[in-house]
């Protein structure tokens, strides 16, 4: 979709919502080298949403949307949870279908789009919480990697079920006391990044969203590699300040506290040899992104 397609018929201009008008005038579809630096000076592809004040997940959402290399031809797949409260306000086509089947939906979607548009780049990006990715949807997360489906999976890891009120999840730390783990969680935080590596992902990254530069680079690489090579996975710590008892202005500090050396979210990145070779070929052409997607 080019920006042309969303232009408003002049006759209808005044009845369109102001947010839509802004999107047409100041949205960043098709902008070269888009990234988090565009925020504040352009219309973001995410609108006012109903997440809690101060929610780090909201920050992550803003970065992801700002950093998609090809938003005019990107389709996102979400799942049930806090993220599903945001997707209705996201200005790229996005699908909510059920809880846990996001990687299955993305598999079918990516294949259908590749079949329908063989000469076009259509990026598919899954964005779901840790419950959807690791617990109820683990089967489909892994199988999409085994099958080498060409899309990016982003997990917003808040280490619990936030939308249902703070129940323990597979990515919760061992010993953490939460609903449904009243005596403390009995087993270790599932190490999905490691599992992703051996399951066929060509790019795996784990980090918090405290450093937008790093998030931008990861999102960009993950999507480019998924487009050409195979599945990629990014796990972002987006703490649920509400459920871990933090004040609404403490989310950033919580992330910074969790990413130090040997901490749960110490930055880790894995790039397969094949993907490394591919990244070398695209690096010099970075500014000519249009040609790659043309």
């Amino acid at each position: 979709m080019s920006k042309e397609k969303i232009k408003i018929n002049t006759e209808f201009y005044d009845i369109m919502p102001v947010e839509y008008q802004e999107l047409v005038e100041e949205g960043t579809y098709g902008k070269e080298g888009r990234g988090w630096k565009d925020v504040g000076e352009s219309k973001e592809l995410i609108e006012e949403h109903s997440l809690c004040a101060g929610c780090p997940e909201s920050i992550a959402f803003r970065y992801v949307l700002a950093c998609l290399p090809n938003p005019e031809d990107t389709i996102m797949v979400g799942s049930t949870g806090c993220t599903s409260l945001v997707f209705p306000h996201v200005a790229v086509h996005n699908i909510h279908s059920l809880f846990g089947n996001q990687n299955a939906v993305a598999s079918g979607l990516k294949r259908a789009l590749s079949y329908r548009f063989p000469d076009k780049v259509k990026d598919v990006v899954v964005l779901a919480g840790d419950g959807a990715t690791v617990d109820i949807g683990l089967d489909m997360t892994l199988q999409s990697w085994f099958r080498q489906e060409k899309f990016t999976t982003i997990c917003f890891d808040n280490e619990l079920y936030a939308n249902t009120g703070g129940q323990s999840s597979g990515l919760m730390q061992k010993g953490f006391v939460a609903k449904m783990a009243p005596a403390g969680k009995k087993f270790e935080k599932v190490n999905l990044p490691e599992i992703a590596k051996v399951s066929g992902c060509h790019y795996v990254a784990k980090m918090t969203v405290s450093k937008p530069n790093r998030v931008e680079k990861a999102i960009r690489q993950a999507i480019l590699i998924a487009r050409e090579i195979g599945p990629t996975y990014i796990q972002l710590y987006t703490p649920c300040i509400l459920e871990i008892g933090k004040q609404m202005m403490e989310g950033l500090q919580e992330m910074r506290d969790s990413e130090g050396p040997n901490k749960r979210f110490e930055f880790e990145e894995y790039i397969s040899e094949e993907a490394k070779a591919y990244l070398k070929t695209v690096a010099p052409k970075k500014k000519k992104r249009k040609e790659i997607s043309a």
């Binding site: 802004e22 988090w36 630096k37 925020v39 504040g40 000076e41 219309k43 973001e44 995410i46 609108e47 006012e48 949403h49 997440l51 004040a53 101060g54 929610c55 780090p56 997940e57 909201s58 920050i59 959402f61 803003r62 949307l65 306000h89 937008p212 989310g251 950033l252």
Partner: peptide, 23 residues
């Protein structure tokens, strides 16, 4: 400086005013 714009959890909420060069 873009600290507030960058870390604001809300989209399109803290903007950079190009004219006055302030957030």
């Amino acid at each position: 400086c873009r600290l507030c714009i960058m870390y604001c959890p809300e989209a399109n909420t803290i903007l950079f005013n190009k004219e006055n060069q302030v957030a």
